[in-house]
């Protein structure tokens, strides 16, 4: 473990972090050792986000650092074993709505918190959610939407999940622009989350993590 690397990532020193990773990779440090440090740093970043000291600039930069580090260590990573996850979350912006920033942030925070996340993207029809629940088998489904038009489509999506007989298998959370508790009741979801940290807390609560 390199505390230096963890600190560099967690303190948003991008240049230092990448230089350290290159140095470690060149001197033969195993990829999983580096990735464990990255994970430890992401935990710190998640905590700071939760405490309200980090915001979007830090989350975006953390995502960038992670991608660049992955690109450096990936060539040596091919044979590594599959990662263990807290649980699975299926996420997407409902049909008719093409906003993705909030959803992407939630996806990123769920991933760094240890979830296996399948992101269906934007403008996702209800049937696509149903099909993905069958194949991906998530414990949690996250529906995102920015506009008032998403109220009806979220309700339609929850109903489709119900009709397919899958409602009992999943917990459903909603979030985005004009969403609130009243909308949660209307669409028949299990919870509304105000931000990415709320989504992580909800998902952890449901999978017992």
């Amino acid at each position: 473990m390199s505390q230096q690397l963890i600190d560099a990532i967690a303190d948003m020193r991008e240049g230092d972090a990448l230089a350290l990773v290159k140095e470690m990779a060149d001197s033969g440090v195993k990829p999983f050792v580096i990735l464990n440090d990255v994970k430890a740093a992401m935990d710190v970043i998640g905590q700071r986000y939760e405490e309200g000291t980090y915001f979007l600039p830090e989350l975006m930069l953390a995502g960038e650092m992670m991608n660049q580090i992955m690109a450096i260590v990936k060539p040596a990573l091919a044979e590594s074993a599959e990662e263990e996850h807290l649980g699975k979350v299926l996420i997407g912006t409902v049909k008719g709505d093409i906003h993705d920033i909030g959803k992407d942030i939630v996806t990123f925070m769920l991933k760094v918190s240890g979830f296996d996340v399948l992101d269906l993207g934007v403008d996702v029809p209800e049937q696509k959610f149903v099909d993905a629940i069958k194949t991906f088998q998530p414990q949690v489904v996250g529906l995102s939407g920015f506009l008032t038009l998403a109220f009806d489509q979220m309700k339609t999506t929850v109903e489709a999940i119900e009709k397919a007989g899958l409602r009992d298998q999943v917990k459903i959370m909603i979030g985005g622009g004009q969403m609130d508790e009243a909308v949660k009741e209307f669409v028949g979801a299990d919870a509304y989350g105000k931000d990415a940290m709320a989504a992580v807390k909800l998902a952890k609560g449901w999978v017992g993590g």
């Binding site: 008032t148 004009q178 009243a182």
Partner: peptide
């Protein structure tokens, strides 16, 4: 007055 109230209240 919230959008959700105008639509759902």
């Amino acid at each position: 007055v919230p959008s959700s109230l105008l639509k759902l209240g």
